[in-house]
Simulated scan of single mutants.
Amino acid sequence: MKSGLAQRHWSVSSLQVLRDTLAARGIVIAPFLVQAGLPPALLDDPRAQVEATTELAVIERVLAVLGDPPGFGLEVGVRYRLAAYGVWGFAMLASSTVRDALTLGLEYQDLTYSVMPITLAALDGGEAVVFDDAGLPPALRRFMIERDLSASRQIMTDLWGTPSPCRAVTLALPWPADTAPYEAVFHGPVHFEATHNAVIYDPGMLDRPLPQANPLVAALHVRACQERLRQVLRDDGIIEKVTGAILARPGHFPPLEDVAEGLEMAPRTLRRRLAEAGLGYRDLVARLRQDLAIEMLTATGLKVEAVAERLGYAETASFTHAFRRWTGRPPSSYARQGR
């Protein structure tokens, strides 16, 4: 996991959350920062950035001193408010529905502070936000699972403006002596020693409209997310090679494994190279789809249905849904411009 994060960096807002949580326990974060090679004054600059691996080093030192207590990750996670994520958070807040917000958030998850891959999947009769802990360092595993899942629940609370119900939360962690703190944070039943780390919602929950929905504002923030991703690119060469491989077969967006084979490298190596460039494979595919969609609609005169098919969407409705999220407008408005 750490090798894949070697060049990833983000705002000090995440360390500020850790600082505030420790302060509530009467603990000063400064010594842990110094041990990791960071000046304590860095957290006073809201514009400052920190490398992901350095933040993980700070967390590891904190946990070593505290003894990795169960529930500490919850204390940190609930302090992650949407505003702490910058344009990513604001784009989610302005989304039309919970599903829109989650889909957008997952497309640009490289802009979050999570070190676990996150997916949306059907699970136990509901729809679940699933966190893959396979690559977590053992010393950070419990903390990161607790922190990231509780942070995701806080994000849902911020989206709704009030705590939102969930069907269940499953954690691939041992049963703690006291489950009450977990139930209080997750606002639902919590199951331990599970196969997945997941927050499970009733299917209809994700399609309910959000109170601060504003498609035009959301589109502006999506573009800001794209610009932020471009700013953190560190290896244009690999991005260009992968882009060329993706576009080699029009209308087909191959899985990362196929692209890696074509570039004669292992999938793990390609993931690492892309991570070092600051861009995930899914983010790159999403960006290409958007750019191609706009170009085909405005320059070729193709119908919306034809563009959706060429971009690999099984249903036109899914393409229209994604296009509205990208631009704040229906694809038909761009198609009309092209005629």
Rank of each mutant, 00 (worst) to 15 (best):
Q212R: 15
I200Q: 04
L210N: 13
V259C: 06
N197M: 05
G278E: 03
P215I: 15
R271I: 00
C225Q: 02
P211V: 05
R230I: 10
D207S: 09
D207N: 14
P211W: 10
V217H: 06
A245R: 04
C225A: 13
A213H: 01
L229D: 10
M205L: 12
G278K: 04
A245C: 03
P267L: 01
A213W: 01
A245W: 00
P267Y: 02
Q226M: 12
P209F: 08
I200P: 00
R223P: 01
R271D: 01
G278H: 09
L206V: 03
P215Q: 13
E257T: 11
V222R: 01
L256H: 08
E264D: 14
A266H: 07
D207Q: 14
E240N: 09
P215Y: 15
M265S: 12
H221G: 05
I239E: 14
A266R: 01
C225L: 10
R271V: 10
H196Y: 08
N197D: 14
V199P: 04
G237Q: 09
I239R: 15
L274K: 00
V232Y: 14
F253H: 03
L216I: 04
L233A: 12
A218H: 02
Q212I: 03
A260Y: 07
V259S: 06
C225G: 09
L263P: 03
P211C: 15
Y201W: 15
M205G: 03
N197F: 10
P250A: 13
G204W: 10
D235P: 11
M265C: 08
G204K: 11
A224G: 11
A248I: 02
L274A: 02
G278T: 03
